[in-house]
Amino acid sequence: MAEKGSLAVIELVRSIGHRVNSSVQRLGFAARFFVMILVYSGQSFRRLHLTIREIYFSGFQSLLIILVSGLFIGMVLGMQGYETLQRYGSSEALGVLVALSLTRELGPVVSALLFASRAGSSITAEIGLMKATEQLTAMDMMAVNPIARVVAPRFWGGVISMPLLAALFSAIGVFGGYLVGVVLIGVDEGAFWSQMQGSVDFRFDVWNGIVKSFVFGVAVSLIAVFEGYDATPTAEGVSSSIKRTVVYSALAILALDFVLTSFMFRGL
């Protein structure tokens, strides 16, 4: 009995070791993959239409979900914010609350999460299916580098789209807050905008939000193209890669957000 127990423990330790080993290996592969993308980016920028195409697929086609979610989140912020602020008699600060929470946090984070599930998953699916149907191998055999031709444009398409989507998300969110706060509830319009302008600093709040969304864009796009490229070339393999893209992206976004926030807004 005891022997069986100790065997189980050894087996557990062994499986943990195996998991650590393989994840470190994957991490190393991902890092090398990132370097390769950067190395072959020159080639793909010379064919700009490839990247433009990917901006269309990951950026333009995410517009609807980004705008609708941004609008609703802004409206909810307006409602909840008013509810809380009016208890302290400072409902004029509603604009500040809506704008700061959107530009600093919600804009970059929520739009990156949406982007990961809308565009990131489809990038993974696309590349994974190309791999499963031997299209990537075929490309390589035809002396066309798949990283330059397929991976790098998708990566850059995502990196370029992400900050624009985050800005759109924040902007429409502020508009949503305005709709609920000013138009619906009747907060003073002048106070709404002027307090907002007085408290939101471009460099500090807006710019930091853009920097965040850029970092998230790099992370999500890298995870998406890597999971696609690394997918097991079967139907289940691709579907579990898509799942990993969404899960890892979400975790990466939230963890990076914590790190970036603590650097950007520390001690202030």
């Binding site: 704008a99 530009t103 902007a171 905008w193 600093d201 471009f202």
Partner: peptide
């Protein structure tokens, strides 16, 4: 897409910020 994205940035910079 790029134009409205940049417009949103300008809105955030000038109107919100």
């Amino acid at each position: 897409f790029v134009v409205i994205g940049i417009a949103a940035l300008l809105f955030l910079a000038l109107r919100v910020g």
